[in-house]
Design a protein around this nucleic acid. Sequence first.
DNA 1: GGTACAACCTCACGTCGCGTGAGGTTCAAG
DNA 2: CTTGAACCTCACGCGACGTGAGGTTGTACC
Lengths: 245, 245
Amino acid sequence: MQHTELKVGELARRTGLSIRALHHYDEIGLLKPSAHTASGHRLYTAADIARLSHILSLKQLGFSLEEIAETLGRADFSALRVVELRLQRAREQLAEQRQLCDRLDSLARQLRAAEHVSADDFLQTIEAMTMFEKYYTPEQLKELEARRQAMGDDALRQVEAEWPRLIASMREQMEQGADPASEPVRALATRWRELIRAFTGGNPGIEKSLQTMHQQEPRMAERQGRDPQLMEYVGRAMACLDAPK
Amino acid sequence: MQHTELKVGELARRTGLSIRALHHYDEIGLLKPSAHTASGHRLYTAADIARLSHILSLKQLGFSLEEIAETLGRADFSALRVVELRLQRAREQLAEQRQLCDRLDSLARQLRAAEHVSADDFLQTIEAMTMFEKYYTPEQLKELEARRQAMGDDALRQVEAEWPRLIASMREQMEQGADPASEPVRALATRWRELIRAFTGGNPGIEKSLQTMHQQEPRMAERQGRDPQLMEYVGRAMACLDAPK
DNA sequence: GGTACAACCTCACGTCGCGTGAGGTTCAAG
DNA sequence: CTTGAACCTCACGCGACGTGAGGTTGTACC
């Protein structure tokens, strides 16, 4: 009989696991050392170590300790099926992670493009993103993202800054009772349309989604100062643009 | 006073959260309803609901409840920095997920290519993969994977089946004391070299990594019947191939 | 007024893979 | 015989709830 049996500390050092983890495996019956000293110290035999290496292999593939125990328990399991099931789970999680990264990345870019970001702006931006994900298809979102990226942060910043000014100007005209067909309103309406077209890129699907979102979520528009009354005024101004003078 | 306040059940139904979750948020102080009925039923006001929508937004970005409470607590936080930190975490997790998927995918393909997979084969394959990841660079692994994929499952299966036969034949020659320069051994050695070249694709980096692995992990080779003695015999046979008759 | 039944309430334990002590025993060396 | 390292066994803690148990309240119908 050689000195091949290892004590927990040694085994932990060699495997990189913690002593506590090995104790845990013992507790749950996943890896019980085959021997003990008279005083109760754990002694891991070569067979135990082999089992542990199998455990670590399966752990690396993302199996839970319970699944590992089950897998090692029976010799008849279908390896391919087990792996494929696990792969499916992993793929789903990967897709989620990817989506999360996209969201965060997009949000980070929006924040970089903004000038001053209050806590309120921040939360509003997130909510706007959520809305977008609700009303646009993934492909449309991709297209929008691509267009934003093509514009660059500076241009984006400018547009974001222009909107409030444009809305304020339009509101002023409305409150002064200006004719939607008058020259100053035509100019504002033209710019309004340009900005929207810069956003939609002329894509009819995106235009439609945008409309749907505005109809379904009027509160979102209101927060930006675009209440239904103003929108109706803008609508009339647009109609005047299309109609000949 | 209108009927704007919601009870837990209603709020749960509208948000898709569980009642227990809302109770939990109350417990940890993340979202305490501003009002209660005389009998203690929770009443969520419009402000509470607004706060909850912020909570859900941040939750969607993968923040922990503690982080959300902290973020909503202070108005002065740097939104960009918070998001960028979270993004970094998400990217790391994404990379891990991707690696896991790759591993599982590769393993699944290996298993599909194999004919009969015993539990032992299965575990051995995983361990081999781990070894590979230890000795080959990520680029090399990619190249190997690409070559495997190009070969197709059937060809791979054939090669996998040929190795044990080739090893057995070679061992037979060795045990019979055949001259490494003899014709039958030359034939076997030639085939041996061909199979290895099919694996390495002639890439010197991969050849080197393969050698290193064989030196460092002799036990792996032994499991496949290639003990040091046999390997030395093969080495001599190879040398005879290179040297003129 | 009584009687269902749904919706609400408050404990309080379980999950998963250990980390992190607390408090005590054993081992190997000097 | 002492010292310090290595070992032992509890046992609580995490994070975000799920899942009962056991009791009260609200509402509708007879």
